[in-house]
Amino acid sequence: MRPIRFTLWLKLAAWALCLYPAAALAWRTYSGHLGANPVETLEHGSGSTALRILLATLAMTPLRQLTGRPEPIQLRRTLGLFACVYMCVHFAMYLVFDLELSLPKLGEDLVKRTYITLGFSCWLLLLPLALTSTDGWQRRLKRRWKSLHRLIYPAALLACGHFIWLVKKDETEPMIYLGVLLVLLGWRLPWRRWARGILGAQTTT
C-alpha cells in the first residue's frame, strides 16, 4: 500500500514541477509582465524549459542505477512527454510570431540558419518518440522500441547545439546545459566493460 502512494505523490510532484513554468509564463502573459520583448520571453521560456526537462528525462536512468529504486523509470515517460510538449509550443510560437505561418520562410530558415536546422531536427527526432511512448507501442515494437528511443541522445545534442548556435556571444548558459548532457551521456558508456577489458588484458600478460 505504502509504495504505491509514494509513487503517486512523486508523479504529482513531477506534474506540478513540469506545469509550473507554463503556469508562470501564462500568468506573466495575463498580468503583462513579460518584459519589453514578450514574444522573445515566451520563445526563450518555452525553449529552455523543454531543454531542462529533456535533461531531467535523461537523468532518470542514472538515478535509478544510483539509488537502486524503480521510481525514476516510472517518471521517465511523463518527463519525456512534457519535454516534447514544451518543444512543440516553442516551435509553434516561432512559426506563428516569427514566420507568420509562412512555409517558404520556414524553408529558407531550414536551409540557411543552422540553429533552425538543428532545432527542427531535434523536434523531428523527438516526435516519433512521443507518439510511440504508449504501453501499446512499447509492446508492439518489442526490442526495437528501445533502439528507437535511443534517438533521445542525438536529439538532446541537437537541442544544445541549437542553443549554442543562436547565442550572440555569451555562451555560458548553453555550455552549462551541454556540460550536464555530456555527463549524462558519458554515464551511459560501458565504463565497466572497458575497465574489465583492460584488467583482463593485464592479467593475461
Partner: peptide
C-alpha cells in the same frame, strides 16, 4: 547566423 530582412519592434 540569422536573417536581417525583418525586425521585431518592441
Amino acid at each position: 547566423r540569422w536573417s536581417q530582412k525583418t525586425e521585431r519592434r518592441l
